[in-house]
Design a protein around this nucleic acid. Structure first.
Lengths: 223, 223
DNA sequence: CGCAGTATTGACTGGGATCAAGGAGCGTGG
DNA sequence: CCACGCTCCTTGATCCCAGTCAATACTGCG
């Protein structure tokens, strides 16, 4: 069984930048004002059980949010790409872990600046939470009812949509991360991608750079 | 493969009660004021793609919220029990289906009465969304990384917590519903329950009535 | 009783996990 | 420059958990 024990991230020694910083402005984005912090790859940003008094937004790089079972099995709940907000919880403690995937820049703000203590909430924050919920539902459907190749196809479709450039995807995450996101093993991920390649659905330039050659067929494969 | 084609719910012909009605008051609950509607078992409450201009709250009975793949595979996203709210979406359309499980009473309110058009949101509603998100994450972990018996054990633990009476659970849903919630088949659910019974972990009075005899062992089985 | 829907049980299959062995990319140091 | 080690990825062989197919039992209900 693949476990998490061998790939534990070191506790972050973040490098704070000078001065406050706002993320890229966008009508539909949460415009976090806070301290930008640079994380090297595989650094813990927060852990399960820690006080959830901050919220985070990815500026560059990528972040994995995940939970771990006692025996080391890991499930990635979401990949956060530039613009994505993470770390917002209902309770006082985080019930998931977050780590940088590659070298990443993250803006950190105080939770109290975003969530008025018990006052009104921003509709943007609401949309954010609801789109997270929507994405979680997609993932539940994937994990519960789709086969390995269907999961891979919809993963590639999701990534193409989120960071695709003319059908070419530059993946920030490893095969192990993909496996832990899709509820598969690294071997199955690798084998299925090879299979897609030999069917002419994708080309794999290097293992992090994938082009979707037959988008229509790929979409159909999602079932 | 188990598909949904054979178990399609008939479109509801709901029986509206006279007059407005408020759900049971509770500090932490959304106190929907709206029209109570009685649904017979297996009636559609709303479907994917329909306008999401109403929100719902279970008064009695139970509701399944689910999504369906084109070929009929079904994944239940959540079971709603008395007190639970469902049908809140970000966009203008539902992206899931909801059906009554047994005969159920549901309060229906206009979405605009709950979600101020673009103004402030109630913190209660926020807690509701965040606890939904939390539960979704639990389910993602279940589906992605736990075995059939671990899923059953955590399902029973969840149900015991939500509607257990001294360790005895009166399940509102069928084996098929449980299977579609846990990403399993009905046969695996049945076999695993039989296995739990022969291990002395549970007793099955009738197939909807289950008592947890060894709660500690059961919790340990969740992994 | 007979019928229909639901649940259980059994026999067998197969998709994906596990175990194991290379291969490719890459930084480091000689 | 190449050799070496390290990490990540790929590929192959085999296994096993859960799915599939099929038969039987249970439960209401007319």
């Amino acid at each position: 069984m693949q476990t998490y024990s061998s790939i534990t991230a070191r506790r972050a020694e973040p490098i704070p930048f000078a001065g406050p910083f706002a993320g890229p402005a966008d009508l539909d984005e949460i415009n976090l004002v806070g301290l930008p912090i640079a994380y090297a790859r595989d650094r813990e940003i927060f852990g399960e059980g820690e006080p959830a008094n901050k919220v985070y937004k990815v500026i560059s790089g990528a972040v994995r949010v995940f939970r771990i079972l006692a025996d080391g099995r890991r499930q990635i709940l979401k990949f956060c790409l530039p613009g994505d907000v993470f770390g917002i919880e209902m309770g006082a403690e985080h019930n998931a872990n977050a780590e940088s995937i590659g070298d990443s820049l993250v803006v950190v703000a105080l939770r109290s600046h975003v969530l008025g203590d018990d006052a009104s909430l921003s509709p943007r924050l609401w949309r954010l939470a609801m789109s997270d919920l929507r994405r979680s539902h997609d993932q539940i459907l994937n994990l519960g009812r789709r086969s390995a190749s269907e999961r891979l196809a919809s993963f590639l479709a999701e990534m193409a949509e989120r960071l695709g450039d003319e059908g070419t995807i530059e993946l920030p995450m490893s095969r192990q991360d993909i496996a832990d996101y899709l509820g598969l093993t690294i071997e199955t991920v690798s084998r299925t991608l090879t299979q897609f390649r030999s069917l002419g659905l994708i080309t794999i330039r290097d293992c992090r750079t994938i082009s979707i050659e037959r988008p229509t067929v790929m979409t159909a494969l999602c079932a």
